[in-house]
Computed example of a mutant assay.
Amino acid sequence: MNKNHAKTGKQYLLLMVRLLLVKPAFSYLEVIIVMIILTTMLHLQFNNKIHSTSFNSTESKIKILISEFQYLKSKAIKEEQSVILIFKPHTNTIKIIDSHRNNYQPLVIKNGIVHPYTNLKYIAFDKHGHNHQFGSLYITLDNTMYKIIFHIEKGRMRYEKI
């Protein structure tokens, strides 16, 4: 009985080896072709995504400007002193000073100006990040007008395209 069992075990092993050798698989060339196709598809997908969300669009420029305002607000909190942003209509710069009267490099609005509709002459962030006045700052970027709205509660701000 052991002889027959050993014989069938060897036969089974030989059969499995033959199946593994005979079983079709991908060749290296086929794998390389598949990888080239996948790489090309991924490249086209990411390239299209990058071009669709351009960093030079007016939407991204206004978001960058608001992030600059957020940075100045956090600077006021960190340094525990007020930071004041001064808006002058028909200019492309926003002047920045702190409570110790230190002048900072002004914010430059690239391809844009502060529109005269603006009902704020300045906005001040205190050492807690709050501003104590509310109003709207109108910015014209690349012939598109945006309204940045400053809220009193917690120094929040948002923008709208007009």
Rank of each mutant, 00 (worst) to 15 (best):
K3W: 02
A6P: 01
A6L: 10
G9L: 14
Q11P: 04
Y12I: 13
Y12D: 11
L13G: 00
L14Q: 11
L15N: 05
L15P: 00
M16N: 09
L19R: 07
K23G: 01
S27A: 05
V31I: 15
V31G: 03
I32G: 01
I36H: 07
L42S: 13
Q45G: 04
F46I: 12
I50R: 09
S52L: 15
S52I: 14
S54K: 07
F55T: 14
N56E: 15
S57K: 02
I66Y: 01
Q70R: 11
S74M: 09
K75C: 00
L85E: 09
I86K: 11
I86C: 02
K88V: 15
T91L: 05
K95L: 10
K95R: 08
R101I: 04
N102F: 02
Q105N: 11
P106K: 00
I109V: 06
I109A: 03
I109W: 01
N111Y: 07
N111W: 06
G112T: 06
G112W: 02
H115C: 05
P116F: 04
N119G: 07
L120Q: 06
K121D: 15
Y122F: 15
A124T: 14
F125G: 00
F125V: 07
Q133N: 10
L141W: 06
L141P: 01
M145W: 09
Y146L: 05
K147W: 07
I148K: 03
I149R: 05
F150Y: 01
I152Y: 06
E153A: 14
G155F: 09
Y159Q: 00
Y159L: 08
K161R: 15
